[in-house]
Design a protein around this nucleic acid. Structure first.
Lengths: 110, 110
DNA sequence: TTTAATACCTTGTATCGCAAAGTACCAAAA
DNA sequence: TTTTGGTACTTTGCGATACAAGGTATTAAA
């Protein structure tokens, strides 16, 4: 049972990923590989085996829909689009996130 | 599969609990029930079935030690104390937490 | 037609938090 | 003395999440 710096980060990310996905899709449509790229760019490594099931879950919950689009460089891409319900969920998550940040801040101070 | 506001909060807390415990114990020694009280006070409900195994895990990792202390009102209490290794881990977690907060912030903006 | 790149998907595993139930100690009331 | 209620610690079974690893399919270039 190791506890590297990487493990610590992975641990902290738990449960926040869903929030990140909705946040990304709230800005623009995207397909899985591009989402992974964006997350990697901000230092949040996510692997395919994590992302695909997550997208399917959110789609099944009605938070997302998707459409196929041809690519000039490879197989067709599944572009995900956030739904009204997804935006409601995102608003809730924004609140929950703010609360969490404040909670940690309070805990450290008092 | 419901998605109430409470579920959203519970989701977000995942993985952050360990950080909270070390943060609390870095301020002062505490026993499980008092830790639950403190977390409840800042709006972070945690139940016994979650906290006790977590404390045992952290103790087994050498992040904490404990000592028994008599109570005037009930059975003896197991006071947990953070160790040097625990403080190192906490420092790593502080960094990881800051990074995560910045990451989310970046994701929302760009 | 083979190879490389891109993209999507599935399976098995470990871990985490929760719900629920159980054990034990102590003091005050019956 | 026995019972009751409060406090505290512990365990078991479950559902959900992320990861590792491997698989399938499409396209274009060699």
């Amino acid at each position: 049972m190791e506890n590297t710096a990487e493990n610590v980060r992975a641990q902290m990310r738990k449960g926040v990923l869903e929030y990140c996905i909705l946040s990304i899709l709230n800005k623009r449509e995207a397909y899985a590989s591009s989402i992974i790229e964006e997350l990697k760019a901000v230092g949040m490594i996510v692997v395919e085996g994590t992302l695909y099931p997550l997208l399917i879950r959110q789609k099944n919950q009605g938070l997302l829909s998707y459409r196929w689009e041809e690519s000039t460089q490879g197989p067709p891409r599944k572009y995900y689009v956030i739904s009204d319900k997804g935006r409601e969920q995102l608003a809730q998550m924004d609140d929950a996130w703010k609360e969490l940040v404040e909670t940690i801040d309070t805990l450290k101070r008092v």
